[in-house]
Design a protein around this nucleic acid. Structure first.
Lengths: 214, 214
DNA sequence: ATAAAGTCTGAATGCTGGTTCACTTCTTGC
DNA sequence: GCAAGAAGTGAACCAGCATTCAGACTTTAT
């Protein structure tokens, strides 16, 4: 024998793979799934198109991995907030706020994760992750009702409604990603976040925290 | 001159065009936008693929027309309910109910309109129609607050949240279109509708109509 | 009947973008 | 230094599908 992958070589390959994923994520954040062709991604990562297939069996597989990584981070963050300390209603408030804030801070990627047209494989992944968001929200809602802070309700439905509501409210500002980004923490954004969390709380039936809009 | 389109001929062409749109809608409802190739649609309408181009300049144009017709009907129905007689909260309730019910009665089409992957042109149209739903909901919400039936809130945001919530709640049951359709008015569906309208009312801040879940 | 002007057809064309592959360029172990 | 075996390259390949087009068939008006 005259060649065996040395540990160093192995980790170099791993690094290339990671770099590929990172660059692909950036490309997707910038031009969406539609514009993220294999060659565009390979270019961004500084390798040849053919080399992509050294790391992934297909473009779809790479796309799915990109999606999982990015969406996984969001699920994790959201989960930490929602399952953290404090009363359920407070956690829900903060969860919505954090989720929306993160989306607005990384619009391109958020849009890709939430709404941008994508190939079927990514679409399926999107569904799966939405279900995870739902599960997280549903748990908090259940805790809220158990604690008597929220009225009785179908937690799963409320969770779905929350997921959809947040997504829909964000799509508009995210879609306009290119226009003069209105400062991720400008006046308008603050108002948006306030109104969104208010709507979310109402949706879960939290007694109006009375933060009248504007 | 030796040929001029006679009125009869003209209306025949118009009829073919209509038939094409109808058949295309059916195909889309059955196999989604992805599966609705020009030849599949032409086959369904009983004409040759090339003849499609006698009536539409491109596949995208046909797709957009299909979307507009179908979505337009929904907007119209929803508008009629939301702008009808009665107090705003009641209208909102009925609007959500009617919307969801119609979607569940024509799952394939509803899924295509709401969520199925589609070419960019259709995606754009989808955005436009979502905006119209929002506008309709926003108006009712505004009326509700004006009448003192709903707490002060950002009606636009609430409307977006409502649109998103309804869509998200429906996507799951709609996506499973092929599985044993659980009777459009079975027990499960009734519960779903009740929970959905309840969530929607809470979202708008309507004082709990106290219809405890299930 | 016939010419002019359409409409219809469906196979051929062309484009787009993922995937392959013969070849070049490393890396490894002796 | 060298042979074995990878990894890297990018142009060629290929599949799917919208779109076109030359020829066949219809309708209209004389």
């Amino acid at each position: 024998m005259a060649y065996r992958k040395t540990p160093a070589e192995l980790s170099r390959l791993e690094a290339v793979r990671e770099r590929l994923i990172t660059c692909a994520t950036e490309v997707v954040a910038e031009v969406g799934w539609a514009g993220a062709s294999v060659s565009a991604v390979a270019d961004a990562a500084g390798i040849a198109a053919g080399s992509v297939y050294q790391h992934f069996p297909s473009k779809a597989a790479l796309a799915v991995e990109v999606f999982r990584r990015a969406a996984g981070r969001e699920v994790e963050v959201l989960g930490e907030v929602l399952q953290g300390a404090g009363d359920p209603v407070g956690r829900l408030t903060r969860g919505v706020d954090v989720f929306a804030r993160r989306a607005l801070e990384n619009r391109g990627l958020a849009y890709a994760l939430l709404a941008a047209p994508a190939e079927p494989a990514v679409g399926a992944e999107r569904l799966a992750f939405r279900r995870r968001y739902r599960t997280l929200f549903a748990e908090v809602v259940r805790e809220g009702t158990a604690a008597g802070l929220l009225p009785p309700q179908n937690a799963e439905i409320t969770a779905a409604a929350l997921t959809g509501a947040i997504g829909e409210v964000l799509v508009e500002p995210l879609g306009a990603a290119d226009e003069q980004l209105p400062q991720s923490d400008g006046r308008a954004t603050r108002a948006l976040l306030a109104d969104l969390t208010a709507a979310a709380l109402r949706c879960a039936g939290a007694p109006c925290a009375e933060r009248p809009t504007h």
